[in-house]
Nucleic acid binder design. Structure first.
Length: 259
DNA sequence: ATGCCTCCCCGAGGGAGA
């Protein structure tokens, strides 16, 4: 089973790029972030026509997450637990049933800039809630994946120019420590379990020719429970998508599971 | 690199992103 996470930066603006990608790369499951659409306006028929089941958790204007799956989705849950006041659409999870069941969590972690400030406080609080949900997933001792736009540069090697990010919410020591606290509960960071070394990025700014200069950062991640890591075949980044027509500023990150 | 784009809101110019 091939699963991709992809921050599409607006579903309406990405109709062409997204359908081309689905037709050519053919994920079994696509976990989408930043759909920037309410559920009612999401172009679900476009995906259903291609054989995908569609589950969305959107809001007006920004944020929003969705799951597309060629296999049936069960037990869909919307919103990250832990704060009834939080109205931002950044979390959807569901179980996909192939040869075996895998719990899929699709997340769009807050950016947090400027830091310090209320947006950074929200990011750290959100990560504390994520840690709590992550601990529950581990306790279930089943294959589960938490994938999406984490807005975290884990290590200096995950940025082409780490010095440019030292005061940014994506790379502040406190942000990275919060990410490690979640990983250290017992998760495997899928990409780094398959590929080491610098030069692997999942985001390039639209400005100043960042893509042409390969001035990127790696901020889209997949965290696996031990039972999911057991069945991982491979994990990779589909960087070429960034060079396409009207691209998102992010590219898909993939995992292949024996499931 | 405290923002050189791009997206959204709408129907002008501002908020948000990373």
């Amino acid at each position: 089973m091939k699963i991709a996470t992809f921050n599409i930066n607006g579903v309406k603006a990405r109709i062409g790029a997204l359908t081309d990608w689905l037709d050519n790369s053919a994920p079994d499951v696509a976990l989408l972030q930043e759909i920037k659409s309410v559920d009612e306006a999401f172009p679900r028929e476009m995906f259903e026509d291609r054989g995908y089941n569609v589950e969305t958790h959107g809001q007006k204007g920004f944020n929003g997450v969705a799951i597309l799956s060629k296999l049936p989705l069960e037990d869909v849950s919307r919103g990250l637990p832990g704060d009834d006041e939080d109205v931002q659409a950044r979390w959807i999870e569901a179980t996909v049933v192939g040869d075996r069941a895998v719990r899929l969590c699709c997340l769009y972690l807050p950016n947090g800039n400027p830091a310090p400030g209320p947006k950074y406080d929200y990011k750290l609080a959100w990560m504390e809630r994520l840690k709590s949900r992550a601990a529950d997933l581990l306790e279930a001792e089943e294959p589960a994946i938490m994938a999406g736009d984490y807005n975290i540069i884990p290590m200096a090697e995950d940025a082409a120019r780490p010095d440019a990010w030292t005061k940014d919410a994506l790379f502040l020591p406190e942000s990275r420590a919060a990410f490690r606290r979640i990983v250290n509960l017992g998760f495997t960071e899928a990409f780094r379990a398959c590929k080491q070394g610098p030069g692997h990025y999942s985001y390039w700014d639209y400005q100043a020719g960042a893509w042409d200069r390969n001035d990127g950062i790696r901020i889209d991640h997949m965290l696996l429970t031990p039972q999911a890591a057991d069945i991982m075949r491979d994990c990779w980044i589909e960087a070429a998508v960034r060079g396409g027509e009207k691209p998102s500023d992010h590219v898909p990150v993939w995992i292949d599971l024996d499931a």
